[in-house]
Nucleic acid binder design. Structure first.
Lengths: 160, 160
DNA sequence: TATTGTTATACTCTATAACTATA
DNA sequence: TATAGTTATAGAGTATAACAATA
């Protein structure tokens, strides 16, 4: 007779943990007035000033129309500026404003708090080990911490 | 002068990794014809036969109307049965059908594949360490592997 | 009157397709 | 004609509120 296999729970628990971490960050930045997705976009633009919306869409693995909505909200909030590129007036250069830079500071603080909250149950040594393993997995799977993953690689179907 | 702090990336990478794991599972069960959310509900019902929809909603941290939709889909697919409770005809007892039980087997296979795929970049020793740490974190935060977390503790606002 | 489940409805997120302007 | 960005629209997921049946 076959013994009843114990189900492999790590993958599921990892999904749960990721969702938990994401939700926690969402709560923490609510006072800042940004969604996690918009926060990720702000960080990407800060990292690559002058990015075009098209390039941003590629970076996000998303579509131009989605980028319009995200940038609209950031621009309306005064965190990001759109400037027509004089060299090719079809392009919009995206840049972080001074106000946006201040928000980036708040986001970093929120990230630190989130990090501490999520890892709180681990002691210092465990935390270090865990961080190393998570980094290794993320790198191996080609994940970018600034790309908000609604719930993963859509493209094919909303698999929620 | 203050040195530029290196941002704490583990929380974000964990979100990414969780979304990645969830998306992978979603792909794997596409042939089965279930969404991850429905799959989680099926597992919960298997674990607690005769559950009422109200109780299920509580278990999911969701609302009764949401449960109706989820159970509708599972019942239409023939994986779950609704039976009025003779003792209190307001309740519907939820149970997994024979067909549902077969699907549960397929889900377990998919979970094993997902688990292997996600953890593939780690060697055996790292995998064991990682699994232990993930389990510890999930337990400490009170997470249930069968509760699909759209993207976290909604309840207050869709923080996507 | 309180509780279980259902239906009607609305809102958010995100994608596809059609459109405008620039090249 | 090709490309960047925008608008219109649609679909999936999930919530709130009103409702029906039962207690």
């Amino acid at each position: 007779m076959t013994s009843p296999r114990r189900p492999p729970r790590t993958g599921f628990l990892l999904s749960q943990l990721g969702a938990f971490a994401s939700a926690r960050f969402g709560e923490l930045i609510k006072p800042v007035g940004l969604t996690p997705a918009a926060a990720g976009v702000l960080r990407i633009i800060a990292r690559e000033p002058g990015l075009s919306q098209r390039a941003l869409a590629t970076r996000l693995g998303s579509v131009p129309s989605r980028v319009v909505v995200l940038v609209d909200s950031l621009e309306a909030a005064g965190h990001v500026s759109r400037t027509r590129d004089p060299a090719d007036r079809r392009h919009h250069r995206l840049d972080v404003t001074e106000a946006g830079r201040q928000v980036l500071g708040a986001l970093r603080t929120a990230a630190e708090t989130q990090n501490a909250d999520v890892l709180a149950p681990l002691d210092a040594a465990e935390r270090e080990t865990f961080t190393a393993l998570v980094s290794k997995l993320a790198a191996a799977h080609g994940l970018d911490p600034d790309v908000h993953a609604g719930y993963g690689v859509r493209q094919s179907r909303p698999e929620n």
